[in-house]
């Protein structure tokens, strides 16, 4: 393994987390990570050493996800059914409650339009600054902020409804 591969292996946990925020069903998310890594390796000459590898790979994943989403919607309903993303185990009551709370968030995220979901995932899940997130998405910072705000407001409304 040379330097880039090693760095990519180090990034895999974060790539998986970002993918999970986008694709929800764990198997779909890992497929997305796989596609991302594969694309990154075939385009390795486009990677400029010294720039942020995470941002570069998030951008590749964003594009891969959008491509896949479009391809799937053309083929019609190939997305995993909504419940496939939920893994409610038989662990303790506390863990169960946390799991259910997480499942509500996952459901609410899955209802967000793609552009808002990307903004929320980069800032709230991955902790990128607005400028970094805007760079990943290749949009102006103002557009990022408005997508983020709309996404947050939608999540807020959705989750408030889910709570009795």
């Amino acid at each position: 393994m040379n330097g880039l591969e090693r760095e990519i292996v180090g990034l895999l946990p974060r790539l998986r987390r970002f993918a999970r925020a986008l694709a929800r069903a764990p198997a779909d998310a890992d497929d997305l990570v796989q596609l991302t890594v594969e694309r990154a390796l075939t385009r390795r000459d486009q990677w400029r050493a010294g720039t942020r590898l995470d941002s570069w790979m998030f951008r590749i994943m964003k594009n891969a996800w959008i491509d896949e989403t479009r391809a799937r919607s053309r083929q019609g309903g190939l997305f995993a059914p909504a419940e496939a993303g939920e893994r409610v185990g038989d662990d303790g009551a506390g863990a169960m409650e946390a799991r259910l709370a997480a499942a509500e968030v996952e459901r609410a995220m899955a209802r967000l339009p793609a552009d808002q979901r990307l903004a929320v995932a980069l800032v709230l899940v991955e902790g990128l600054s607005y400028q970094e997130a805007a760079d990943v998405l290749e949009i102006p910072a103002g557009t990022l902020t408005s997508r983020l705000v709309r996404g947050r407001m939608a999540l807020m409304a959705d989750l408030a409804e889910a709570r009795p």
């Binding site: 292996v9 974060r14 998986r16 987390r17």
Partner: peptide, 17 residues
């Protein structure tokens, strides 16, 4: 997700070279 074991198939692709 950060604490989950990474599936070997993902590490495998990155190790190909």
């Amino acid at each position: 997700v950060l604490d989950e074991p990474v599936p070997p198939r993902l590490t495998a692709i990155a190790s190909v070279a």
